[in-house]
Design a binder for these strands. Sequence first.
DNA 1: CAGCATCCAGGACGATACTG
DNA 2: CAGTATCGTCCTGGATGCTG
Lengths: 131, 131
Amino acid sequence: MKKPSQAGPLDPAAICRSSDPLAVRELLTKIGDKWTIFVILSLDLLGGRARFSELERAVPGISQRMLSSTLKTLERDGLVIRELFPEVPPRVEYEMTDLGKSLLHPTQGLVDWAKANWEQVREAQSRYDAR
Amino acid sequence: MKKPSQAGPLDPAAICRSSDPLAVRELLTKIGDKWTIFVILSLDLLGGRARFSELERAVPGISQRMLSSTLKTLERDGLVIRELFPEVPPRVEYEMTDLGKSLLHPTQGLVDWAKANWEQVREAQSRYDAR
DNA sequence: CAGCATCCAGGACGATACTG
DNA sequence: CAGTATCGTCCTGGATGCTG
């Protein structure tokens, strides 16, 4: 029921001054890529900590290349921590940081929305295409 | 703090059976593209209804081509309704549907997260790159 | 086991020009 | 005003093969 947070009735480009739109775009671009959410959700599901091969099995269809690069980006962003154990064969474990965990809640919001409404979206698409 | 919703301790591919992962991915892919969130947020900010040229001004940097195709996708997905007024010069208004409005809350969750935490992400990136 | 290097195809997006 | 058409570019991501 809230009004769109009035900053002026017809204020052009209002969102783009509030709250660093670049940050929003970058965030959305990141979790909007092909694998990031699945890796995040899988890591959570595996208890917040897992090794490379576990994630590989947990995310069907992902290639080593994509899992590796996705994890590297997550690590660079401070969302996961990579821990290398100097053994043979090598073992690497990835653990979600508090920052990473904090992203789970808003992410879950979108997952829930998709769960609840995607059928409607599909129907809308069908109606639209039937013309 | 909730546990990761136990479906089995080491259940491979668990998310991928729950809740239509395709839907989640498609949703994220859509709002993760370059313009969709900005168009949605701008449309909300303009009161949930606006014409093409208003949106063009509200989303700095967007081209006619991208605004047009973004709106077309949103219309197809049932998130906005396009209304054409048979006048000269032509007038077209776009209005958010209830479905579209319902997407605002989960979306806002991500916007808020970005607002609150992006600085930390940037710092993590700097630390990572400084090596 | 946990990657990286390389190559390649397709799609996203920008720039520009034209139209009902 | 509100688009469409066309072209070119960059980037994402898949496939494959190699390595510490």
